[in-house]
Design a protein around this nucleic acid. Sequence first.
DNA 1: ACACATCCATACCGACCGGTATGTAATGGC
DNA 2: GCCATTACATACCGGTCGGTATGGATGTGT
Lengths: 202, 202
Amino acid sequence: MRTKTQTTKQADLTRDKLLEAAFNEIHRYGFQAASLSSILANTGLTKGALYHHFPAKHDLGLAVVDEVIEQILAETIFIPLRDSPHPIKTLQDILRKKRGKPDIVELGCPLNNLMQEMSPLDEQFRHRLNALMQRWQDTLADALRRAQKQGQVRKEINCSMAALFIISAWEGCVGIAKNMQSAKTYQQCFDQLIEYVSSLAN
Amino acid sequence: MRTKTQTTKQADLTRDKLLEAAFNEIHRYGFQAASLSSILANTGLTKGALYHHFPAKHDLGLAVVDEVIEQILAETIFIPLRDSPHPIKTLQDILRKKRGKPDIVELGCPLNNLMQEMSPLDEQFRHRLNALMQRWQDTLADALRRAQKQGQVRKEINCSMAALFIISAWEGCVGIAKNMQSAKTYQQCFDQLIEYVSSLAN
DNA sequence: ACACATCCATACCGACCGGTATGTAATGGC
DNA sequence: GCCATTACATACCGGTCGGTATGGATGTGT
């Protein structure tokens, strides 16, 4: 998605339509199995439009990562965590909010899906996905450290390692629940994660 | 893999070769992107052999789950956990053993890879993969309960929920490390998991 | 030793894939 | 109002995919 403040020309709108449709297709079928024809059918556009905005399918996929997925993470996780004066509470709020939206169970986490599929196969995908993961971990670790200074997290906790584990368990929960296609499992697993976060305080 | 005790005829050997090559191909590229031509090239066999033993690619994939992946899990996890008189120690041994083999970082967990890719798309895959996951959770939960009776696990712990979370975090760790392509991250994350397991005792 | 099922190789097929070449309509600067 | 550039549509291409039809080699029971 482009920056929404600038004057949205028609061309940018079509580009956004392509990105959104590509995101949905990739989210469901993965990047490799994503069909350009299906994406175009869902947008009402044609190959002329697609290859005008993107030189190849590969670049379309990278753009989905850089723009669509990045924005989702920034909005729901990065920004709230970074701006919060009460990091632990904010983290728990985020987790509870995610817990309350089990619609993610059907198709899983878009970021994790792409990581699992593409990281061993494509350097450029891996690089971009890894950068997002690193941002996630750094943001979360920093939030934990701030909470630590406030006395909300035990001093012996290694915040970087804890952040890494939280994200891993997070993605793990979503993945397992997605396999089971069970919102109940999703919430049970997420409750354990929330409990783990609480155990960091003590 | 067939039961190895029975007289391995030539036909069974070719079937096993197909299964092994299919397993490797699927492990690297996923099921959908797995190329039958590549599999056959790696075995030196032809389509005649493949479609004699398996009616379709779909069935080949299911056989990989039912036979190859099932056996890996049974050997390294299910059987050791089930037969152990000291479940917690055995679990920690298993985790440490997995920690010591970071080669899984390159391609990730075959079971989890397939779950993430196929569970939303194919009922039969999902059903089989889910059954393996359920066996895993049940086996682990039962081990934790036995440890609980021995006083090795706190009584207020819900063993089913703990098992679910351990497996989720487990798969999560492998997945994150696979994206980072970092054995160090893998081991750091796994250390956190091992620590969590220890925290169940206390 | 003969009949027959098993086992596997070869050749081939239609479908769909990502990608391209080319034409045309809309847009924006002057 | 003219023109060049942008923004798309249409038609088409080679390649790879999973799958099939057929024939020959290899056991296997009797």
